[in-house]
Design a protein around this nucleic acid. Structure first.
Length: 491
DNA sequence: TCCTCTCTCACATTTGAAAAGA
DNA sequence: ATCTTTTCAAATGTGAGAGAGG
């Protein structure tokens, strides 16, 4: 079954900021069909029929089945596989901005123990929240649609003081990239626009400073051209020798990689915690992969023991919980929007600890405020990035269990390469100065939107989910959500 | 002090874009 | 103007070692 990412109409005047997110499974929480009045209604600017697909889905799945790891370094490291998407359904002549940010999977920290990932405690406080702006932004829909859009240059770093606009992550934490499409002529318009967000479960990864799972290393070497020198057939005899011990395994792995992605994996590996994701996101191949996945996630074998399982695997036995119900609400707080992540039934430390967050123990939705703001601050590194403005998306509020978070609101975007003029003469930057940021945020938000929900409290009804979930399976087609932004001004 | 875990660094190799030359 | 070659910055995983914490 295929269900393209048809946007549900959104009334721009609707301050309740309902977010509609297509889920991939009707049997989940929000199974309401779209109100007839909304289905296919009118304004193409706001509704469109946007569809996003991820490129190289098989490659992503190959990694995902093992447990994708992404290296993060101080100077910044590219992702591999890198994010590359295809878009359709955009208004050809309308301009869009493409953004990517990294969303914590949960409020947990992990460790690699022998051959599997285990929970190692609560997540560390969230580092400065950044969003990567595609350098082509803004560009007309026709531009985005004519060929796949690559985020090759996106870099991940563990340097909280990074000044290059790289996305800052914590090592040993899990994230997934989230793609945003905003119809806007420039960044100034962004805040008036509707964000449409897409996620691809198979892009979930663990940020690491050094690879933990040797199978991931091998997969990277086998597929990343820059790592060609480390391949068995490569010229580096020294490294070949070092790796020779693992050769039998490598051979077996190589033989299995392609197969595994579609036909399951070695049986010595416990079932993948990602199984559920595959079930619904890997096209209609679920029957082929279910229960056979190789997984680095410990405890996954005990599928029925959801508690035990989820304690170790944030994806849980039914990862759909995580992806199928995302609601985004506008941040009402001028500088402290909150994001609530709740992973449904998962009794993970994070969710349990987050009871005070107001997400409710029964709800599956993860609520997020998406209030991208751009801090206008002095550029303190003009030599290296004279026009390296960054703006942060809405400070991703903390996971309930993540402890104190950095609300600096640094919405850094690596827009150094963005088209000149898109930001006009305003120096956008992403400082880590709370004072500055907060100062910027002190806009008159409340004038436009209802009062903000109290932090760590139940969302008021007007923010409650009215998500509409459809069967939305097309392998690498992203889930999407739509939400208005910018309840306050910051420019 | 020892151990474990995580992170950093220099290294050899490869890629790919830009520059130089034919 | 076009094609080929050269140069060089950037990207890659490796493995040793440092550093923090228990």
């Amino acid at each position: 079954m295929e269900f393209s990412g048809k946007l549900l109409p959104w009334d721009a005047t609707d301050r309740t900021s309902q977010i509609f997110r297509l889920s991939s499974d009707l049997k989940h929480n929000f199974s309401l069909p779209p109100p007839p009045s909304m289905a296919g209604a009118g304004d193409s600017y706001h509704q469109g029929n946007i569809r996003m697909t991820i490129e190289d889905p098989d490659l992503w799945r190959s990694f995902h089945e093992i447990g994708t790891e992404m290296i993060i370094t101080k100077p910044g490291r590219r992702m591999f596989p890198h994010c590359k998407i295809s878009l359709s359904g955009l208004v050809p002549y309308a301009k869009y901005i493409l953004l990517v940010d990294m969303v914590p999977e949960d409020g947990l920290r992990y460790k690699w123990n022998k051959d599997k990932w285990e929970v190692a405690g609560k997540a560390e406080p969230q580092p400065p929240y950044r969003t990567y702006l595609h350098p082509d932004s803004p560009a007309p829909g026709s531009h985005w649609m004519k060929q796949p859009v690559s985020f090759l240059k996106l870099k991940l770093t563990n340097n909280a003081l990074d000044q290059h606009g790289h996305i800052i992550l914590h090592s040993m934490h899990r994230y997934h990239p989230r793609f945003h499409i905003v119809q806007a002529d420039d960044l100034y318009s962004v805040r008036w626009s509707v964000f449409q967000t897409f996620t691809f479960p198979e892009t979930t990864f663990t940020a690491v400073t050094a690879y933990q799972n040797t199978k991931i290393t091998k997969l990277k070497i086998d597929h990343n051209p820059f790592a060609k020198g480390f391949r068995d057939e490569g010229t580096n005899s020294k490294r070949r020798a070092n790796r020779s011990l693992a050769d039998p395994e490598r051979v077996a792995k190589k033989m299995n990689v392609s197969k595994d992605s579609e036909h399951g994996s070695p049986r010595d590996i416990q079932q993948s915690a990602c199984e559920g994701l595959d079930d619904e996101h890997v096209g209609r191949k679920e029957s082929e992969v279910k229960g056979e996945r190789y997984s680095p996630w410990g405890g996954a074998s005990d599928r029925d023991n959801s508690h035990a399982l989820r304690a170790e695997s944030p994806l849980g036995s039914d990862p759909r919980d995580m992806y199928s119900s995302e609601q985004l609400v506008p941040g009402q707080n001028t500088y402290q929007p909150y994001r609530f992540h709740e992973y449904g039934k998962s009794p993970s430390p994070s969710s349990s600890a987050g009871s005070s967050s107001g997400c409710g123990s029964t709800g599956r939705s993860s609520f997020e405020s998406r209030v991208p703001d751009v801090a206008t601050v002095p550029d303190h590194d003009t030599s290296s990035k004279p026009s390296a403005p960054e703006f942060g998306l809405p400070p991703c509020p903390p996971h309930p269990s993540a402890g104190h978070q950095d609300y600096t609101g640094v919405l850094n975007m690596a827009i150094a390469q963005a088209k000149p003029g898109m930001l006009g003469h305003h120096p956008l930057y992403a400082p880590y100065s709370t004072e500055q940021s907060l100062g910027q945020w002190s806009g008159a938000a409340s004038a436009q939107y209802p009062p903000p929900p109290p932090p760590h409290h139940h969302l008021p009804s007007e923010y409650s989910t009215q998500a509409v979930h459809h069967g939305y399976h097309h392998g690498n087609v992203g889930d999407w959500s739509q939400y208005p932004l910018f309840s306050y001004s910051c420019w």
